[in-house]
Design a protein around this nucleic acid. Structure first.
Lengths: 235, 235
DNA sequence: CAAACCAATCTGGTTAACCAATTTGGTCAA
DNA sequence: TTGACCAAATTGGTTAACCAGATTGGTTTG
């Protein structure tokens, strides 16, 4: 068979088409939760694509909790009904890459919450981790070196201390893109970093004192420059 | 070579070990952003695992934005520094499956924001989509049928109208687990559903009127029963 | 007649072979 | 000396072959 090399975009297109076809198939065959999908081989033949493509698409839908695979058995519809599944697939197909504004908006939302939770739930170990991340950040800034990474690690330490696994994961997901865009748009200049030290210290102290209200307030101050990128009204 | 079939847990273990080894390798070789990783073949030999395992681990790290692959060229360290990368890998290794409380906490956080944004940014098309989702929900409830899916689709329509791709994606990610747990713990009983109709109508009306404050307030009312699962103080 | 058993078949997962684009090191001409 | 050029080796991506566990339908046995 002819082997083709696809660009990332073409690959995404193929996957979207397969997902759409799977949705149509499920609709057409009236497959319900627990029902078995046709085998990967059969699907690859039916859709005229390679089995790898089918497998990747199935894995994506597994990630979103719509399907699940049992080894040596088959791939099944998850325990959500047909209506929800069809709607979710539609949404997944309509998803687009997040723009910078979305990222910042989401980051602010997440961090104003994680910092409160961290103040409520932090252990002594969490405190130590934050302290050392903060110290690393300080020494970099005082040496006038770039400290974007250390900045970020401090914020991730807070997310970890929030004891909320979902938010922690989501923070990890958006973080690299935030960094990339920060560097691209030069969001952080050096005198900003000096101010950042005191702001970080304030946040740390509030978490240490287990004062969620102040922790959130300090985080808000820290994010003030970001608000210009994302007009944001207080809740 | 001997072929082994692994359980999902064992598979996750293998991946974690590979990621840990990759972190050690990057540390040891002092690889910096833009540097090339050894080839997949070499890594698979070095770590004593199959190339597929290596590929999956690399793809996971690509998902988190730590690595990127160029076809016919190699896999490279992304444009985040060594410190950040090492810290992020540590966090990824430490991630655990989110519990129900985390999910609910995150859902409430996300939805109180998406509903505000939807009120500010919704188009007429968004409004139509929400309307039809809401009607589907109503007719199910009035027929005394289970309407968890339709409920959910209404909320996803709101997320879509928020025009924030990140939050939309995150809502999609947590939704199936929320459903599963709802059904497991019987969070929604039937008389709850009747009350839900009016609450949904209120939310819809507020979004239609482009009144973000009321939209958020109505959503809060809607989530009142959820608060018992997740002691949640107002911000 | 029902339950236990068994072998053929089907399945997702795994490994190996293959492909074409990209690098790369060296060669040759200007 | 330098720049263009080319062929061989390397690479991630793709396809095909293979594996062992699960399913299934028929057969046998109590």
């Amino acid at each position: 068979m002819k082997v083709e090399v696809l660009t990332n975009n073409e690959k995404r297109d193929v996957q979207q088409k397969i997902i759409a076809k799977l949705r149509d198939l499920i609709e057409y065959k009236n497959l319900e939760p627990g029902d078995k999908l046709p085998s990967e081989r059969m699907l690859s033949e039916k859709f005229g694509v390679s089995r790898s493509n089918i497998r990747e698409s199935i894995q994506k839908l597994e990630f979103y909790g719509i399907l699940y695979s049992k080894p040596q058995s088959g791939t099944f519809i998850a325990d959500i009904g047909r209506v929800a599944m069809s709607g979710m697939m539609e949404d997944i197909l309509g998803l687009e890459e997040p723009d910078f504004k979305s990222l910042v908006e989401t980051r602010i939302l997440l961090e104003l919450k994680t910092v409160r939770l961290a103040a409520l739930r932090r252990t002594d170990e969490d405190l130590e981790a934050m302290r050392s991340a903060l110290d690393a950040y300080k020494s970099k800034v005082l040496n006038k070196e770039d400290a974007v990474e250390e900045d970020l690690l401090f914020h991730l330490a807070i997310a970890k201390a929030s004891k909320n696994s979902s938010m922690n994961t989501f923070m990890l997901i958006i973080t690299p893109e935030i960094i990339t865009n920060f560097e691209k748009y030069h969001v952080c200049d050096s005198n900003q970093s000096f101010k950042g030290i005191q702001e970080h210290e304030d946040i740390f102290q509030a978490i240490k004192d287990q004062d969620p209200k102040r922790a959130k307030e300090m985080m808000k101050v820290h994010f003030k420059v970001l608000y210009q990128y994302c007009y944001h009204s207080d809740n």
